[in-house]
Amino acid sequence: MVDFARVQKELQECNRDFEVSGIKVIPTSEANLAHLLGTIPGPSATPYEGGTFNIDITLPHGYPFEPPKMQFATKVWHPNISSQSGAICLDILKDQWSPALTLKTALLSVQALLSAPQPDDPQDAVVAQQYLRDYQTFVSTARYWTESFAMVSSLGVEEKVQKLVEMGFPEASVRNALESVGGDENLALEKLCSC
């Protein structure tokens, strides 16, 4: 059973200094605190600067004694993050997890991973190869993905709804989809298409 008391306090703690850290964690639904959406800003001086990356967080039953399951909901071009699934290769989310860590510290670690890729231990082999062999191309690709996928969320909710409705989806389902994915219009679009 997830320790929801701890999760609640973590959310309060994390969102209290949102202005400083830029990291935010919100529950995807009020009813289920085990499914959260984390948001981290792209670190400066990296191809990810300016982007806002959504991370889908699922708390296992053993949390905080088991690591939270995190994967990028926003598409990212990074050697240690799957460009397909958004899976993150980070030790603290696996064997190096500690109950003393929190969602916020884990997200901070993910943010640090964005600024310090580890191509020797890749999650996405293609990106890692590109990073090692053609760094400039890697940077430009990462920058493009950031601008394409990570900056969309800067749009207002109504703008996203408007955009998706223009694609032909009913407004109610668009709003539901946006809400369920934390406002990311790309994820919402995928969800709408999969339905």
Partner: peptide, 17 residues
């Protein structure tokens, strides 16, 4: 309580792993 829980599963100190 948490200490006991950790001993049942991981067995590592959360502070130093």
């Amino acid at each position: 309580f948490c200490h006991k829980r950790i001993l049942e599963e991981d067995g590592r100190c959360p502070g130093c792993r």
